[in-house]
Structures are given as C-alpha cells and as structure tokens.
Design a binder for these strands. Structure first.
Length: 733
DNA sequence: AGCACGCCGACT
DNA sequence: GTCGGCGTGCTC
C-alpha cells in the first residue's frame, strides 16, 4: 500500500489534490505544512502537504507521484497551520491560496532550501583534537579552526564572511574542513534568540500600569486595547512589553498599517531592544523578505516589524503581537484573499496563547465593543504632562460663504495669525489633483473617463486629465470636445489647487504639499518632512498621508477643508472613518503648553455626529455611533458579507448574483439579503460591477449560507463572471 | 489560475 | 483552406 498525501495547491478551487508520496521519502518527513513540488496539469507547482490520508479522494489510478518534498521540516508549525485553516474557513477562501499567502514569494516558488535551513559550523571531535600546527600552510583554515575551537555554539554560516577579507576564501576553507571530517554543518533550527533585551525604559505611572497588566499575562491569551492620544507614549509601552518578552526568550510580532510607519518605529525599537530585529513589507526585495521571514521562523530574529502580510509569519517562540493603529483600514486586504490582519492577529494570539496589544488614539468600534463585552481589556494612557494640550475645535460654517480655492475667509484669517506668531499651519483635504472635474461653461460638458463611471481629475501642473480609478490619462483639450467653445473650467478643489492658492495668498511662506502625487520619488516624503521639522515650511497641506504617524510639534493650527465629504456617504462606516481622521489629524498639532486649534469647514455645522465629536470627543462619538449601529443591526452588532461580481456586461454580473440569491434565499431566515445592485461606481476600467450584500445577526448562520452557496457554485461554475467574496467588508465600492 | 481542446468567423 | 477568437472542462 503506497502512501497518499493530500496537498493544497494554490489555485482558486475549494479542494485539495491527492498524490502518491515521492519515491524514497520516509513517512516521518511527510509532515503537515511541508512544501512539495507536484505535477499539476502539465506544469510543476508548489503545494502544501495537508495530511497523509488512508483513502484518496479519487481513483487510485489517477494519482500521480509528487515530484519532491521541499522541506526537511515544516516551516509552519501546527498552530500556524491551524490558523491558516481557520482563515480559509472564515474568509471562505481556497486553502492553497491562503497557505501560499503566509509565505514570501521566494518560498512560494519552491526556492530557499538552503536559506530554509540555516546552518552553523562546528568542529567534529576529530577536528577538536587537532593541533593548530596542522594548518601551517592554510592560514584561513587555521583562523577558522581557532574561531570554532573558541566557541560553544556553532558559527552561523552568515557570519563566516567576517573572518577574512573575502567571503569566498572562508567558505572554501570551511568546505575543506568539512571534507576532511574536521568540521560539520549543523542545523540552527533550534537556536534560540539570546535573552538579552537592553535596560528597562523609564515609564510614567500610567505606562507602567499598562505594561504590568500586560506582562502579567505573558504566556497567556489576552487582548489589550491600549488607548491614548498622540504623544501619550503608546510606543514606550510596546517597547517595554517587547523587552520583557525578549527577556523570556520569546519573540514579538509588530504590525503597522503602512510601510511609511516602519522607519520611525524601527529606529525606536532598535534603540531600545538589543535582540535582532527584522522588517517585513512590500518595499523590500524578495530576498530580503525571505531572509526576514526565515529568521523569524527559526527564532533567530527577536522582533519582526511588518505590514499586513506579516501577520502569518511563523514565530518559533511566540511571545506577543503588537498591532499599532489598530483602527486603520489598511489592515484589511482589499483583493484576492480579503483578510483582516487585525482579526487574524487576534485569532493568532488566541491560538498561540499569547497576549495581543492593540494601540490607537481612535479605536475601531469593533474593538470598543469587545471591551464592553469583556473580551478585551482597555488600558488608557492619559496625555503626558508637558506634552501637547488637547486641541480646541471650532466649526466654520461655510454655508453661503464664498470660498477662495476651498479656503474660507475665517480660515485664511486664522492662518495669518498663526503664521504671524511664528507657528505652522496644517491643512487637510482628502482629494488630490487640481480639481475633481473639468467642465465646459458653454454647454455643460464634463470630462469623463471612457472606461469608468467617473469624472477625470484635472492635474494642472502636468496639464493632464487623469482617472483615479483606472490607468486612463489624457492631455488637456484646447476647447470643448462637445461644443467647441474655449471655456473649460476646473470645478471643485484638490490639494494642487489649494497649494497654488496658498502660494498666492502667502507668498513669503514655505508650503509643503504632501500627497501621493507630490511624494512620488524615493525619499521625497522624507525630504519634505525634514523641511517641515527644520521650520522651512509655514504651511503643510496634504491628504490622509498627513494623518498617519508623523508628529508636527510646530503646528498649532489645523484646518480641515471639507468635513462633509466624509460624513455624508452611503458607507455606514464613513462617519467612524471621518471622526478617526479628524482626531488623528488634530493629534498632529500642538506642542508643550500651547494648545492647538482645529478649524472644521462644513456646510452642516449641526450634524449630530459632528456635534457629538466636538462636544464629547472621540469616546462620546463612538458611544453615539455604536448606539446607531446597534439599532440598525450593523457591525459590530451584526455580521456581513459582500459578494462582488465583475464582467463585460452589467446584466451578466447582476444575473450571476441574482442566481446566487435565488438558489439560497428563503432557506435561512436568519440571513438577510440586499441586492443584487450595481456597485456604487458600476463601471470600472471597462468592467461592470455589481454586488450582493448579506447580513445576519448570527455569524454562524451567515457562514452556513456562504458555505452552501459556494458548494453550489463549485458544481455549476460561471466562467464569464469574475467574482469575489468579502467577509466583514470595510469598503463598499 | 493556467492550459488544452474545440467550435465558429475573416484572412494570407 | 487556416489563424485565432474565447467558451468549456480539468487539474490528483
């Protein structure tokens, strides 16, 4: 009886494929999680061993032998695998693709066998007994021999190069020693990080209280929501917790929402933590990513700092997971395997029996709710003495006011005063480009994208019209393509237009515009931020890039140019998002003793949620918004899934979703269906998109319906429609 | 997802 | 007559 292995192949299919074990491979090495290369169709692919099975899922004659086992030992632990299986079930995504997402590309492609098993060099007993004089005519071997004799631990291969001028000669020398039986390579798999972490931090009582509470939970599951405004010292709490974790010989996984936030956190961690630290995000080369991942997997890296995709990186010695800016929506993957790194991290902490520390000045409503239900522990850091005083909010009613390129008189006057006092101003507008539309005053023609249901955005400096939803780009028409008149005018205001107006209004003041367009080049963001810190800039202007991470101590006035854009939207999370944005932007301002002022331009000064935010701050807003969500049975009080479809024709997409609904509707009264309906922007890049919304007060019921519908879809697939399923969607585009 | 297979239109 | 469009089925 030959051994049969079940393999998850990374294809969009909800089933596994069985193979005969490769010839000559002992049963003990067929462990769940090892990578295999398998013949698949007429190609060779990398798959992941799920189990050794008794009875294959198809006729024995159809089984083909796997080509090879790629790992001597699984790179994923059983807990890792358990987490991935949970994620595949929860997000209803094919297991092979889910497992694949845990690996860096280098390993997905079957590479990295030598990287996968880092080795160290040790002397064999025969070698240890040698007389150094043996190496009279081989100085490099002799040097290597002496280093090895002086060590208790194996010498990592990665450190060979330090021993001589050329890495090449040392490796040759090492090979000689091994060939003669005087030294051998040993696996460093179990080498544990040294439990040294550097001196403890000086913390204030609140920070110390938080650290102690978390520390008491080391080695146990627990979620700690660390709430504190910018400058309240959340980072020190993370660092001290990590320091203590490292001292226990355990590792820390630190997740941030965006690459741009890694450098500053990396610097602060390196200053304070002596254990090896690695960074993992998409800005690195594949080789660097693989090295960081493997270092963490083997337990040689003490701290892994990464973005969303790092949430699955295996930990040899799980200690703690830190989730910075936990409310940030970037933690949700928006294509393919649509997981929430925040939710996966929580489940991971639970499965690994370790604490998770989630920090934010503006926690997500989900997390606040979990505190209320007693699932998370809330730890509050008050603003530190000497740090920025809480900002004053003021509403600027701009109804019936003439705006100058998006700026009201009141705002301009306040800016004048602030600049005259030698302080800096920060303006926030979440719309890049010069103007969001170009219209003809003769006939009303509007520049539209040919492939999307969207206006083209005017980028005046480059004289281009761009679609912000696809790659379309055009030059500026000299006259109206519809009526021929030469009266095309920009309508609406983007950051580029405000930038231009500011240079006119404040010619002596330096302006820094920070958005995706102005920070395109490498290091250009860094350079701009440097200019701001050095005081060369009086006015900072930007999109949400400004709301994240960076602190501007010289800023005492913040202007939010268009509050309404956020509060009035079909997306039920828009208000939450906007409130977070306002508080986050406000938090960039102010310095010791000098309170910042936040001016909000709005045409709806009486909007109840805005009022609530200004009167009671974020906690008050959150309470009000939670009450609304509860009465509407929206998350976190109800569960949702969004089924999206996309095809060449709207009817095709709609019909596909209608079929899904018809086949399942009525079978489960606990699940409510909305749609199918065209997406808010039905046509994008020439494809027609529709969506079907599922809601339920009971998660299990929702998931049962999804499982059921997917099973039917497997039987009768629809090939002309590309679809995706989004569990716990955060965006409804 | 790829890839082969197969069936219909417009071309050297 | 064929080249190639893409709808369909399959991958252990």
């Amino acid at each position: 009886m030959e051994t049969v292995v079940r393999v998850a192949v990374p294809i969009p299919a909800y089933r596994c494929f069985d193979y005969l074990a490769p010839a000559g491979v002992p049963l003990e090495s067929l462990l769940p999680g090892v990578r295999l290369s398998v013949p698949f169709g007429n190609r060779i692919r990398v798959g992941y061993l799920i189990a050794v099975v008794e009875t294959p899922g198809c006729e024995v004659e159809r089984l083909r032998p796997a080509a090879a086992v790629l790992d001597a030992a699984p790179l994923l632990s059983e807990t890792d695998l358990k987490l991935l299986r949970w994620a595949a079930r929860y997000y209803h995504h094919p297991l092979g693709e889910v497992i694949q997402s845990a690996f860096p590309v280098h390993l997905r492609e079957g590479g990295g066998a030598e990287l996968a098993r880092p080795s160290g060099l040790v002397l064999t007993p025969a070698g240890a007994a040698l007389d150094p004089a043996t190496f009279r005519r081989a100085p490099v071997q002799r040097r290597l021999f002496e280093v090895l004799r002086g060590r208790e631990r194996p010498l990592p291969a990665s450190r060979l190069a330090e021993l001589a001028g050329s890495g090449r000669t040392v490796r040759d020398a090492a090979r000689r020693l091994v060939e003669r039986g005087w030294a051998e390579w040993v696996d460093l798999q179990d080498r544990r990080i040294p439990a040294v972490a550097g001196p403890p931090l000086q913390l204030n009582p609140a920070q110390l209280g938080a650290v102690d509470e978390i520390s008491q939970n080391l080695g146990r599951y627990g979620v700690f929501l660390l709430e504190g405004v910018t400058g309240s010292g959340k980072t020190e709490v993370y660092i001290e917790v990590i320091r203590r974790v490292i001292t226990r010989g355990e590792q820390a996984l630190v997740l941030v929402p965006e690459i741009s936030l890694t450098p500053q956190l990396e610097r602060r961690l390196r200053e304070r933590i002596e254990a090896p630290l690695a960074v993992f995000h998409s800005g690195l080369s594949e080789t660097e990513r693989a090295a960081a991942w493997l270092g963490f997997q083997k337990g040689e890296v003490g701290v892994l700092l990464g973005t969303r995709s790092a949430v699955f990186a295996p930990m040899r010695w799980p200690g703690v997971i830190v989730l910075d800016e936990e409310h940030d929506r970037s933690f949700k993957q928006q294509e393919g395997f649509r997981f929430s790194a925040r939710d996966v991290a929580v489940m991971r902490a639970r499965m690994a029996d370790i604490p998770l520390v989630a920090g934010s000045a503006t926690p997500s409503l989900e997390s606040i709710r979990n505190v209320q239900r007693g699932r998370y522990v809330r730890l509050v850091l008050p603003a530190r003495a000497g740090a920025a005083v809480a900002p004053r909010y003021r509403v600027l009613d701009i109804r019936a006011r003439r705006l100058q390129d998006g700026l009201s008189e009141g705002l301009i006057a306040a800016m004048r005063d602030t600049l005259a006092a030698g302080d800096q101003v920060l303006l926030f507008l979440n719309r890049r480009g010069f103007a969001p539309a170009l219209v003809c005053h003769g006939c009303g023609w509007v520049a539209r994208c040919r492939r999307c249901d969207a206006n083209l955005v005017l980028h005046a400096r480059e004289s281009r019209l761009r679609c912000h939803h696809c790659a379309a780009e055009h030059g500026l028409p000299g006259c109206c393509p519809s009526c021929g008149q030469e009266d095309l005018r920009p309508l609406g205001v983007g950051t580029e237009r405000v930038d231009e107006a500011l240079r006119r209004l404040f010619p002596e003041v330096g302006v820094a515009r920070i958005d995706r367009d102005s920070t395109r080049g490498r290091r250009s963001l860094e350079r701009m931020l440097e200019r701001v810190q050095q005081g060369e800039v009086g006015i900072l202007l930007g999109t949400q890039m400004l709301a994240k991470g960076h602190h501007f101590p010289g800023v005492t006035l913040v202007g939010i140019l268009d509050v309404d854009a956020g509060f009035y939207s079909t997306d039920f999370r828009a208000a939450e998002h906007t409130a977070q944005l306002i508080v986050q932007v406000a938090g960039r301002a102010g310095r010791g003793g000098k309170p910042g002022t936040v001016l909000l331009q709005t045409r709806h000064p009486d909007h109840p949620l805005l009022q609530r935010l200004l009167r009671d701050g974020y906690p008050g807003f959150a309470a009000a918004e939670l009450a609304e969500r509860e009465s509407a049975c929206l998350p976190p009080f109800g569960y949702q899934a969004l089924w999206r479809a996309e095809s060449k024709e709207l009817a095709l997409s709609m019909d596909f979703l209608a079929r899904l609904r018809e086949e399942a509707d009525g079978k489960n009264g606990a699940v409510h269906w909305l749609g199918p309906a065209p997406a808010p922007m039905p046509r994008q890049a020439g494809r027609y998109r529709a969506q079907l919304w599922l809601k339920s007060a009971r998660r299990e019921e929702l998931h049962a319906v999804l499982t059921d519908a997917l099973a039917r879809l497997q039987e009768t697939p629809e090939r002309r429609v590309r679809w995706s399923l989004d569990v716990d969607p955060v965006d409804f585009y």
